[in-house]
């Protein structure tokens, strides 16, 4: 094990380059998957004929497949049917699709957990369906969704590492290249990378805990 060699300035800089890609891809995917997940979740909750069951089927299929498969499939199988996405676009698309399906379930669960009595009260006091959803159900449901949503975002950040399978130059991929330059770097590099992921995610969960105490 060669800690000094593994932690050379060049290698550290190279790992940080990887972290940058990881953060960018994760950030964009978090935003997109949150928006899409919310929309799909509300559709699932609202029991709209045809549309809701279709969403159910899509969400179930995606949730029950490995992300690794989805990433590889979007990058290298879809072009065979004419859908061609570049490296970063494919990574973002795959992460977004997968995590949006997860988030849709969280959103639906959060909305369902709102007390039925309140909805009836709101309806009988003259609010429309949409108004009830917007003013009564969403604000309460959202509060309950915060913890699972944050852990989903952390999952997403961790899951970017699976994009090594399509050679996305993110943190894990760059770590592999460093290890390739010297096997004695393997353990020191992996430990450092673990520390980096941990720090970023721990920071994220700390932030969310503060957010929670403020909103609740």
């Amino acid at each position: 094990m060669d800690f000094a060699g593994a932690y050379s300035t060049d290698n550290l800089k190279f790992l940080l380059d990887g972290l940058y890609i990881t953060l960018i891809v994760a950030f964009i995917s978090i935003i997109l998957s949150f928006v899409i997940g919310c929309i799909v979740g509300v559709i699932r909750y609202s029991a709209i004929p045809v549309l809701s069951p279709i969403m159910f089927v899509i969400v179930e299929l995606i949730r029950n497949l490995p992300l690794l498969l989805i990433i590889f499939f979007i990058r290298f199988a879809l072009p065979e049917v004419g859908i061609k996405l570049g490296l970063i676009t494919a990574a973002i698309a795959a992460l977004t699709i997968f995590e949006a399906a997860m988030i849709a379930e969280i959103v639906r669960g959060g909305l369902t957990s709102v007390d039925k009595g309140q909805i009836e009260a709101a309806r009988s006091s003259g609010l429309t369906n949409f108004q009830t959803l917007w003013h009564i159900v969403l604000p309460q449901g959202l509060r309950r969704m915060v913890p699972p949503l944050v852990s989903q975002f952390i999952s997403l950040l961790k899951d970017t590492s699976l994009a090594v399978v399509i050679s996305l130059p993110e943190l894990m991929h760059n770590a592999n290249i460093v290890i390739g330059h010297g096997y004695s770097y393997a353990i020191p590099t992996l430990l450092l990378v673990a520390l980096i992921y941990f720090s970023v995610n721990f920071l994220l969960s700390m932030l969310s805990r503060r957010l929670e105490t403020k909103t609740v």
Binding site: I154, K158, D159, S161, L162, V164, M172, I179, A186, I187, L190, L191, V193, A194, Y197, F198, N201, F202, S205
Partner: peptide, 14 residues
Amino acid sequence: RNIPLLLVVYIFFY
């Protein structure tokens, strides 16, 4: 919980 699965697998591999 805060590190990727792939990393855990690599640690047990290397």
